[in-house]
């Protein structure tokens, strides 16, 4: 008995059953285009995207936009806004507008950096827990519980003060502590996706476990991760600003929107020099708000059940 070869031309008798089923094929629209279309229907999300893009551009072209070096000291200090100093100068005579522009780099770095770190950690741990179950799941989920029951800001405060407050350390700490939510999310998705027949088919077809996890399971768990990560960028920015405000984040002379507000804790600055603290505060609000709008739009676009 010779082995059948599927590459042989078709025999006539086998053709009979091959009623070509060409009836209504759906329009060829890729998932990505579908999501994009839905996203752009969300007006606030589009506005958020525009604002956030502008902030990124400001971050990239800071040198061009800022009239002064952020740490350059001019001879006038505590000056009110003028043509030369659009937002006035601070107590040491640095140009507030220039510092504002440069500080966007801090927020973007922390936001994107921390989230990239914790999404990577959370995805891997969540996938391992969900896919392998049993003791692997048990250990990972208990560790997740420990991390989740930490009062977030307090632990970050302590950790940052222990390893030294600076941009790199804040990003690292936020990244290392932020993963539990992603891990839970991914675990939940993996748990339900791994029961899907297409994953079982992958096992039956003899695919390797990493291939099944990374090519067949995780791409299907992508939507909730992306939404969570977007909101995560917003909270990381707030967190950095809060830490810097409390003096446990980015420290002067480096400019951060958060530490630009520290001085407003003095009542004189607060009441008589509002140009020192209102603009950076508004910048935090604006960037966080725009990211939250983007996240909301993504959630609507990605998680809606209707197929088109």
């Amino acid at each position: 008995m010779s082995l059948p070869n599927i590459n042989e031309p078709l025999t006539k008798q086998s053709l009979e059953s091959k009623t070509l089923v060409m009836e209504e094929l759906g329009k060829e629209e890729s998932y990505l285009r579908l999501v994009t279309r839905r996203f752009f229907k969300h007006k606030l999300a589009v506005a958020g995207l525009i604002v956030f893009t502008l902030i990124i551009l400001m971050d990239i072209f800071a040198q061009v936009i800022a009239p002064h070096h952020p740490n350059a000291v001019s001879d006038t200090f505590e000056a009110a806004p003028s043509a030369d100093h659009l937002l006035g100068t601070d107590q040491v005579g640095r140009d507030v507008f220039s510092r504002l522009v440069y500080a966007s780099r801090v927020s973007i770095t922390v936001g994107l950096g921390a989230v990239a770190i914790y999404v990577a950690i959370g995805t891997v741990l969540g996938a391992l827990a969900g896919y392998f179950g049993k003791w692997v799941d048990n250990i990972i989920m208990r560790v997740t519980d420990v991390f989740m029951s930490f009062p977030y800001l307090m632990v970050i405060l302590v950790l940052v003060s222990v390893i030294g407050p600076n941009l790199f350390n804040i990003t690292l700490v936020l990244g290392i502590l932020g993963w539990p939510q992603v891990a839970r999310l991914v675990r939940g998705s993996v748990l339900s996706i791994k029961e899907m027949d297409y994953v079982k088919a992958g096992v039956a077809l003899g695919y390797s476990t990493p291939k099944i996890i990374f090519q067949h399971i995780l791409p299907n768990a992508f939507a909730p991760i992306l939404v969570n990560a977007t909101f995560g960028v917003a909270s990381a920015i707030i967190m950095e600003a809060s830490l810097s405000f409390l003096g446990m984040g980015v420290r002067p002379p480096a400019a951060s929107w958060g530490n630009m507000l520290t001085q407003a804790q003095s009542l004189t600055v607060l009441s008589s020099q509002p140009w020192l603290w209102i603009p950076p505060g508004l910048m935090i609000l604006l960037s966080v708000l725009s990211i939250n709008f983007i996240g909301d739009g993504l959630r609507d676009a990605l998680e809606s059940n209707q197929s088109r």
Partner: peptide, 17 residues
């Protein structure tokens, strides 16, 4: 959206102001 996006310290300083 404003409520979740505004940092506590900025809102606090604004309120004091």
């Amino acid at each position: 959206f404003l409520g979740v996006s505004i940092p506590h310290f900025f809102l606090g300083l604004g309120a004091i102001y």
